[in-house]
Design a protein around this nucleic acid. Structure first.
Lengths: 202, 202
DNA sequence: TGGCAATAGATATAAATTTTTCGATTGCTC
DNA sequence: GAGCAATCGAAAAATTTATATCTATTGCCA
């Protein structure tokens, strides 16, 4: 089903969604208009949108509200998903305070850290638990997603732990490639590497 | 030159670099060994590495130290680049405190914010300036890179400002597509969208 | 010293992705 | 109502990217 969509297409869907949400005027919008606004080809836009349930009308385009709904539906914004954060350092706290996850139906329910000064505190209204109790808490919370904001040196250990607690999807900010069994999906965001790549681009 | 490399290849280079740096044993390493460790095809590894100046030896592989040097050279880790951050919120502060940028020759030299409580403070040893003085300071500092950690509502304005100050490369964390003239490269990291994409994947 | 096996690098093939082209539909204007 | 133009959606072509194959080299072992 969703495995048929190219990852590149999937990655563009939130871009469409953001753009459509930013529009104030209701009514219809054509793939050409979206393409021009986003600097891409209009056929590509249509093909991407075709993966969702959105239907366009000839000579008119897509109803903006319907298109947003279709994108949100496809991206699972309507079913609530729990996520936990490992590492309540600056980055972890930033994500705990960030309120943009709810747009996608994602709720950060807790963070874990090994620093006793942080354990027991709340950030953005979410509790920081001791990583020692992670296994127990993970079983209790049964989150769908885990976000790793821990140092690279311990990222693999933490990943192993969350995987053993049946978390199959990991967003990893540590600059290290995580080994994971089949069925587990790891997605990496290496901010420094991103800056370096940007700098390398002509 | 560097425009010939596929972005996908470019994005893998830091992965190789991280892996090679994580190895303790010196000596030679083959493309096959790298491929197995990273779960990819060995031909792809060789093709990627061929974009750098690295040379492998038949029946032996690549000298690890040389390969690291070649990757660092290609990624520009050796020429120092200044970067500034806009928005000294949690995320901005996290990046100011992060010391992983130096691996790529990137130095965060300052941040800008419009919150008077933050202006004048230091985070990770770097000053937070008033965004009102940004134009003057940017001319003074002449950074190569700008990182936007500001709310989506003002991201375009901030982008316009840094572009007008001759910053051509922007890493944008705000969930909005930035318009920029030709010659300016914008790279986006939408953390919430990344989590949603991860969640959507099978 | 000869043969074998592993390896890089080049070439060729295959797969995936994007762009182009096309046909059908439909709203709009005259 | 007829023609036009814009649009979607599908099909085809082209491009890009990844994988497989091939060739030459070379270290290693008998």
């Amino acid at each position: 089903m969703k495995s048929d969509i190219p990852v590149t297409s999937l990655q563009r869907l939130p871009v469409y969604l953001n753009y459509l949400k930013s529009l104030t005027s209701d009514g219809y919008i054509s793939s050409g208009a979206i393409a021009r606004a986003l600097g891409m080809g209009e056929v590509l836009v249509r093909k991407d949108l075709a993966f969702t349930s959105a239907q366009g009308r000839t000579r008119v385009g897509y109803l903006r509200t319907e298109l947003i709904a279709a994108l949100e539906d496809y991206l699972g914004c309507n079913d609530k998903k729990k996520a936990v954060i490992f590492g309540a350092g600056e980055l972890g706290k930033a994500l705990m305070s960030y309120n943009g996850f709810s747009n996608y139906g994602i709720e950060i329910v807790a963070a874990f850290d090994n620093d006793s000064a942080k354990v027991g505190t709340y950030v953005g209204g979410k509790p920081v638990f001791d990583v020692e109790n992670a296994t127990k808490k993970l079983v209790e919370l049964s989150p769908r997603l885990a976000v790793l904001c821990v140092p690279a040196s311990v990222a693999q250990d933490v990943a192993d732990k969350v995987i053993s607690c049946n978390v199959k999807k990991i967003l990893n900010f540590a600059p290290v490639l995580l080994r994971a069994e089949d069925g587990v999906i790891v997605r990496n965001i290496d901010v420094a590497a991103n800056l370096a790549i940007l700098s390398s681009m002509i």
